[in-house]
């Protein structure tokens, strides 16, 4: 046929990926996720050694030689390195003051309207947990079950969970895309690297705050600033990549077919 055919693009209501793209999805999922999960599990002792050594050096600048590192076994992952440091309890006056500040903050923030409301809801959430924590220390400080080593243990295990989950979540999310396997694995690697650096900075800051300003801040930091913030960069990296992929394949007739 010598007549040139225009490419007729399928309406968005009907289009889907071609057979060629569909056939490799299951393989892609395992190929993208398992190597990273295995690598994390295998390298956990090394990563955590560096993690805690770095934290120890930074914290020693402020707390001197009282900052130590201990190892504790953890099934599957091997030895976990943890920070050991003397923390402090807040005084009753401090707890009262913090409670009042939290209550006032929540009342003021919850009265905000418009787009500020969505930010104020999050800040109110943090203040509520701070309020609960300060009341706990006001009335039953002897029952507080953690020291810094305990917090370090919680944080490190949460980070491990997140590092193992990131490849699974992103593999799932990127599974259906027509881009190359290497490229998608690169995105997962980028997210993991981001998580490592971010996690380290956050770890040192959290330990510094707890060490300097007492255990009262442990709960809000662990609950409000630990897992939720990790979703930001995961979704951010995903959205930028999706934008790039969408531009690249938008009019590629090889990857699309009609219903």
């Amino acid at each position: 046929m010598t007549i040139a055919k225009d490419i007729m693009y399928c309406h968005r209501a009907y289009r889907k990926l071609s057979e060629r793209i569909r056939s490799r999805q299951l393989f892609d999922f395992f190929a993208m996720s398992l190597p990273f999960v295995a690598l994390i599990i295998f390298l956990t002792p090394t990563i955590l050694y560096f993690f805690n050594a770095a934290a120890q050096h930074f914290l020693r600048l402020s707390f001197g030689n009282s900052v130590g590192v201990v190892n504790t076994p953890y099934p599957l992952f091997g030895n976990l390195s943890l920070i050991v440091l003397m923390g402090s309890y807040p005084t009753p006056l401090y707890c009262v003051g913090l409670s009042l500040v939290s209550i006032i903050g929540v009342v003021v923030l919850m009265s905000m309207r418009g787009i500020a409301r969505s930010v104020s809801v999050y800040v109110s959430f943090v203040l509520l947990i701070t309020l609960i924590s300060s009341l706990f220390f006001l009335f039953t400080p002897e029952r507080f079950p953690y020291n810094i080593e305990g917090f370090s243990d919680l944080y490190i295990k949460t980070e491990l969970g997140i590092w193992c989950t990131i490849p699974l979540i992103l593999s799932m999310s990127l599974l259906m895309l027509p881009s190359s396997l290497a490229e998608r694995m690169g995105i997962i690697a980028l997210a993991l690297l981001y998580s490592l650096i971010f996690g380290l900075a956050r770890y040192v800051i959290f330990l510094y705050i707890i060490g300097h300003y007492s255990y009262v801040y442990m709960a809000p930091m662990f609950i409000a600033f630990d897992p939720p913030l990790d979703t930001i960069y995961i979704v951010g990296i995903y959205s930028i990549y999706m934008s790039i992929v969408s531009k690249r394949y938008r009019k590629d007739s090889d990857i699309w077919q009609c219903s």
């Binding site: 971010f198 900075a201 956050r202 800051i205 930001i232 960069y233 951010g236 930028i240």
Partner: peptide, 11 residues
């Protein structure tokens, strides 16, 4: 840390 929180919002 703040920069790393804000950076994903840049785009």
């Amino acid at each position: 840390m703040a920069a790393m929180i804000v950076l994903p919002f840049y785009a």
